[in-house]
């Protein structure tokens, strides 16, 4: 899921200075799952805006905001501005499809997990060249600050990462997982990563 962080309501209010009639959109896929921008937070934001003199035209969710067909079906009449709590992708889809100003109420953080309730962890940086089948399906590219694909650095002391010392070094996590499933990490031939896979903006043409 895409993990987002809700911006402070005051900050959102400031950007809405020129607008009166507002529609707030939440998204249930990422923003809702991490309790930062689902329908519930959209309603809370709407109430705050209302209390501060704004007129709320609608508060809604499309389920997934990055699905173009869904966005196209919505009419935003009587709305001066749309406040989107969807991730960067969803918000841009609204902006592309609807001829109205769109502002975001969140910052998009990363692709991560929601398995830790309050702490969301980055699990994937969408590098475009997935190697996790060789690392116990635990990604060192996303989960090591230096994206080390060929084993740990010399800063892995007491199992912890020297950069974020409240986080286990991912190479310990990988090593344990591989050990648990009766495998081990064997150094492949050292090669140079192809970062052109992740040069943005990226496009993917589905040829299926």
């Amino acid at each position: 899921m895409v993990v987002v962080k809700l911006k402070p309501f005051n900050e959102i209010l400031k950007i809405l200075n020129d607008y009166i009639r507002i529609t707030v959109i939440g998204c249930e896929i990422g923003s809702g799952r991490c309790m930062q921008g689902g329908l519930r937070e959209a309603k809370e934001l709407a109430q705050f805006l209302k209390n501060n003199g704004k007129e709320i035209v609608d508060v809604l969710t499309l389920g997934g905001t990055c699905i173009v067909e869904k966005v196209k079906k919505i009419s935003f009449k009587d709305t001066d501005v749309i406040v989107s709590l969807a991730c960067g992708a969803g918000t841009q889809v609204i902006s592309e499809e609807i001829n109205k100003p769109v502002i975001t109420g969140v910052s998009t953080l990363f692709i991560g997990s929601d398995s830790h309730k309050e702490v969301f962890k980055e699990y994937c940086i969408a590098c475009g060249d997935c190697i996790i089948s060789t690392t116990g399906s635990i990604c060192p590219i996303a989960r090591c600050p230096k994206s080390l694909r060929y084993g740990p650095c010399g800063g892995a002391i007491n199992k912890m990462c020297e950069v974020n010392n409240n986080t286990e070094c991912v190479w310990f996590t990988i090593d344990k997982k591989l050990n648990d499933i009766g495998k081990y990490f064997s150094f492949p031939e050292i090669d140079f990563s192809d970062y052109s896979f992740s040069n943005h903006p990226r496009r993917f043409k589905n040829e299926l």
């Binding site: 740990p152 650095c153 010399g154 800063g155 892995a156 199992k159 190479w171 310990f172 990490f185």
Partner: peptide, 8 residues
Amino acid sequence: FAGPEHLQ
């Protein structure tokens, strides 16, 4: 001092 030892 760093680990995992066998990987180091």
